[in-house]
């Protein structure tokens, strides 16, 4: 087993050993959102023709949870190792910066996807959700989680304290994911907010993901995938650059 596989295995084990907190808890939280919002709003809102509001909510909520958990996984793993100092155990061996990057992204993506799948399966107990284009679903699930996993690495490298990481999460990740059309279609927004949403990459992740289920979306899934891929590429290159130069990790 090479250094990369060991690191990947360790990162997977790290969240899997506490899967009650890292997988079960976000699934439960998301289901509570689903039950409460659908109960309150189901009678009043119809976003797409022939799609029940409760069903409409499922992909958006699932995606939001995937993104948040992918981010949480890589960022918290890194900051914990940094603060306890045991990050040296992976900095001393001959693991390349690309392997380092890949291991953290893959493990965090995996957690994101497991959480998303869990939400989807449990939601099916309450509401039926069509699956029109599974390939789009998978593509957006993987790319979205990967993107946030990458962002998590950046945050984990940059932050020196837990509260800096919490700030990153509360002031960037959370607003962007809430304002991305999880609970509504952006077409229902006033013009100004509609335009603003188009600058939010999270919007494209959720819109494209939802397209895979319902076959309808606010923008073309090709546009969405292009935006998501572009962002992923940009952040990956940035992260690889940070890792290669040893920014903050090998100061």
């Amino acid at each position: 087993m090479g250094g990369f596989l060991t690191l990947l295995y360790k990162e997977l084990l790290r969240f899997w050993k506490v899967s009650f907190q890292t997988v079960a808890a976000p699934i439960l939280t998301t289901l509570l959102y689903l039950l409460i919002f659908s109960h309150v709003l189901a009678e009043h809102v119809q976003v797409y023709e022939g799609v029940k509001y409760t069903a409409f909510l499922v992909p958006g909520l699932a995606m939001m949870a995937m993104l948040q958990n992918a981010f949480a996984n890589s960022s918290s793993s890194l900051i914990q190792s940094k603060i306890t100092g045991n990050i040296i155990f992976i900095l001393l061996p001959p693991i390349s910066y690309v392997e380092f990057f890949a291991a953290y992204v893959l493990a965090a993506t995996f957690r994101g996807v497991v959480v998303g799948l869990g939400i989807f399966l449990v939601a099916l107990l309450f509401v039926s959700v069509p699956v029109n284009y599974p390939v789009w679903i998978l593509l957006f699930a993987l790319l979205g989680s990967g993107l946030l996993a990458t962002l998590g690495i950046i945050a984990g490298i940059w932050a020196e304290k837990f509260d800096q990481l919490a700030a990153f999460q509360n002031f960037i990740i959370l607003p962007l994911s809430f304002l991305s059309g999880v609970f509504y279609s952006i077409h229902s927004l006033p013009n100004f907010w509609q335009h603003l949403s188009r600058f939010n990459p999270f919007f494209y992740m959720i819109d494209g993901f939802r397209f895979g289920f319902f076959g309808v979306s606010d923008v073309s899934p090709f546009t969405s995938i292009a935006v998501v891929c572009g962002c992923f590429l940009f952040l990956s290159l940035l992260t690889l650059h940070l890792l290669r130069t040893g920014y903050k990790l090998r100061n």
């Binding site: 596989l5 155990f89 001959p94």
Partner: peptide, 13 residues
């Protein structure tokens, strides 16, 4: 475990 993982990081299975 710590020793096994450390070995693994060096590619020693």
């Amino acid at each position: 475990e710590a020793l096994r993982f450390q070995s693994g990081y060096f590619g020693l299975a």
